[in-house]
Nucleic acid binder design. Structure first.
Length: 235
DNA sequence: AACCAGGACGTGA
DNA sequence: TCACGTCATGGT
């Protein structure tokens, strides 16, 4: 087993299943010390269970851009209060109303526009699964958001790379600080079975691990993974 | 009271 | 391609 896969198993043993992607309707609590909020479904990979939940994941993926999840949750609850947690209502909502609802998530001018564009796109999908390129073609959807939507909303095994992933694995010595998104993505995908659960769980575990040891610099000093590698317990 | 969070886009080298 | 600046709220 290669190091990337080993680290996955180590993180899973350390933290257990993370229950991503969080949904308003799920009661599960993340056992983590970092941001104990609701919406998780530990060890349950059957979500989203319907089209409404699928759309909620997509909207959350946009809203969480450079924003912490608790802020996103507030925005989602506001939308739910407006009965607007579905593509048609997002499309029909007046722009100012939409902006006000998602304000807690920040960047509300940009994100309101992004949600409008995505809602239109989602309606036109008519139940089909979008391709990665189609998503990337939308204004407001970049690499990470596209992969998050595919992996957690549409259950397509696309590995999600975020700032934490780069930070942690650069520090561990697997990639350079300036590694590109697709390069990092390939590192994981080429060293893991193409398995939905593993992709979903690994990304969530990286976030959890990073929140504990890589939130503010200097980071990594107490990283048990780094220590394990340095003491050559790997390979 | 700065600093930062589960990024993406526009611009000018 | 690449390095920056911009976008914005609220928690710590």
């Amino acid at each position: 087993m290669n190091n990337i896969y080993q680290i996955y198993n180590m993180l899973l043993k350390l933290y257990g299943p993370q229950g991503w992607w969080p949904l308003l309707g799920c009661k599960g609590t993340n056992p983590t010390k970092t941001g104990a909020i609701k919406g998780y479904h530990l060890g349950e990979y059957s979500y989203p269970k319907n089209n409404i939940q699928r759309f909620e994941v997509c909207i959350g993926a946009v809203l969480t851009q450079n924003t912490s999840w608790p802020q996103v949750e507030k925005a989602l609850l506001n939308l739910k209060g407006l009965n607007a947690l579905n593509p048609k209502e997002i499309k029909n909502l007046k722009l100012e109303k939409l902006k006000q609802a998602i304000k807690p998530a920040g960047y509300f001018n940009q994100k309101a526009k992004k949600l409008k564009i995505f809602a239109e796109f989602y309606i036109n999908l008519k139940g089909k699964t979008p391709t990665r390129d189609e998503l990337l073609g939308l204004w407001g959807i970049g690499h990470e958001t596209a992969d998050s939507i595919l992996l957690y909303a549409f259950k397509v095994p696309e590995f999600v790379v975020d700032a934490y992933t780069r930070r942690v694995f650069a520090n561990l010595g697997f990639i350079g600080q300036k590694a590109k998104y697709n390069e990092i993505k390939k590192l994981f995908e080429s060293n893991l079975p193409k398995n939905l659960r593993i992709y979903q769980e690994y990304h969530a575990l990286i976030v959890e691990h990073a929140k504990r040891y890589y939130s503010k610099k200097p980071y990594g000093k107490n990283d048990s993974l780094l220590k394990a590698i340095k003491t050559k317990r790997f390979k």
